[in-house]
Amino acid sequence: MTAIAVFRPNDDRMTHAVSLLEELGVEPIADPMLAVEPTGAVPREDADYTILTSKTGVELAAESGWSGSGTICAIGDSTASSLDDHGYAADIVPDEFSSRGLVASLADRVDGTRIEVARSDHGSSLLTDGLANAGAYVHETVLYRLVRPPEAGVSSERIDAIDGALFTSSLTVEHFLDAAQERDSREAAIEGLNNAIVGAIGEPTQKTAEAAGIAVDAIPKRADFETLARTVVDDIEAQEKRQTRYDATPR
């Protein structure tokens, strides 16, 4: 059976990822590369715009008692859905689910405004710099830190059996390679991925992977996990069909 490594945090996101891959008829190799460490910080409540960039950020903001501030912006549909689940409403969701997409959506309306960005400690500077360049006064609150779980790295031990891999952030790439390095198998892990179909959720993740020597084969048109997973599974199936036709060609 086709095996695909998935690196989501070890919470309901991994549960959903495993269920989805099983529905798609492949074997998930669950290897959580991220764990959440809340900081206890609370988003400011005096902003004209507040930006949330993840489901985790929404959950922590809600737990802190944050009442919401100004126009609320979500980086994508999953963040917007989480806002709705916690009694908030996303006023703005960009067409492109990325920091670049948020800047493009807000740039012509934020000159002179106060913007609160509430997210992890690994948020892209593209967002804060882009909004500042558009004339906004930007404040960032770090709601949580993303760390590598000590048990991460089982996928690198099964690298020869992996047909695909799903990277959902630059940090998952970095943590995967660090875990492989601790097992003295970094080069073998990179070689194994280059014999598989590697999916990256967006351009920043792609660049991180390729800078480390990992070829990226698939980037979904829509930057969400389900689209990423389906894209990689479709690419693997297409590759297998091409190989079958090649093997059946008379020589």
Rank of each mutant, 00 (worst) to 15 (best):
E174M: 11
L171A: 00
E226G: 03
D160K: 15
H139F: 14
V154S: 10
L143E: 13
S155C: 11
D178M: 13
N195Y: 00
E226A: 09
V138E: 03
A200T: 07
V138F: 07
I214N: 08
D160C: 14
E187M: 15
I197R: 02
V173L: 08
A152V: 06
T208V: 13
D184N: 08
Y137H: 02
E226D: 12
H139M: 14
T168C: 02
T227P: 09
E174I: 13
N194V: 12
I162P: 00
D224Q: 06
I201T: 00
K221V: 10
E203T: 07
L171M: 04
R230N: 15
V233G: 04
D163F: 04
A229E: 15
E174A: 10
D160Y: 14
A218R: 09
L177N: 03
T231V: 14
R148G: 12
A229C: 15
G192K: 02
V138P: 02
G213K: 09
G164T: 10
A180Y: 12
S169P: 03
T205V: 09
K221T: 12
A152W: 00
R148P: 13
D224A: 02
I201M: 00
I219P: 02
K207C: 06
R222Q: 07
A161D: 07
Y144R: 12
V147Q: 08
I219H: 04
Q206S: 01
K207E: 13
D234M: 13
T168P: 01
I162Y: 02
A179W: 01
D178I: 14
P150I: 13
L143S: 09
R158K: 08
S185L: 15
V154T: 14
S169H: 03
E191K: 13
E151A: 08
S156W: 06
I197P: 00
L146E: 13
G164Y: 05
A136I: 10
D235C: 09
A223V: 13
I214P: 06
A165Q: 04
Y137Q: 02
G202P: 04
P204I: 10
A134P: 08
P204H: 02
D217P: 00
L131N: 05
R186Q: 15
R222T: 10
S170Q: 07
V173H: 05
S156Y: 10
A188H: 06
G199D: 06
E187Q: 15
A180S: 14
V216P: 00
V232F: 07
L193Q: 01
E151H: 07
S155N: 06
L166M: 15
L177R: 05
D178L: 13
R183Q: 13
H175W: 03
Q181H: 05
E157Q: 10
I214Q: 10
V142L: 11
R183C: 04
L228D: 05
A223P: 07
F176I: 07
T205S: 02
V138R: 02
A209L: 09
V233E: 05
E203G: 00
D224W: 03
A152Q: 01
R158G: 00
A165W: 01
A223S: 12
A179N: 05
G153M: 05
T205G: 01
V173Q: 04
D163V: 11
L131K: 03
E226T: 13
D163N: 11
F176V: 11
E187D: 15
T231W: 03
R230H: 14
F167K: 06
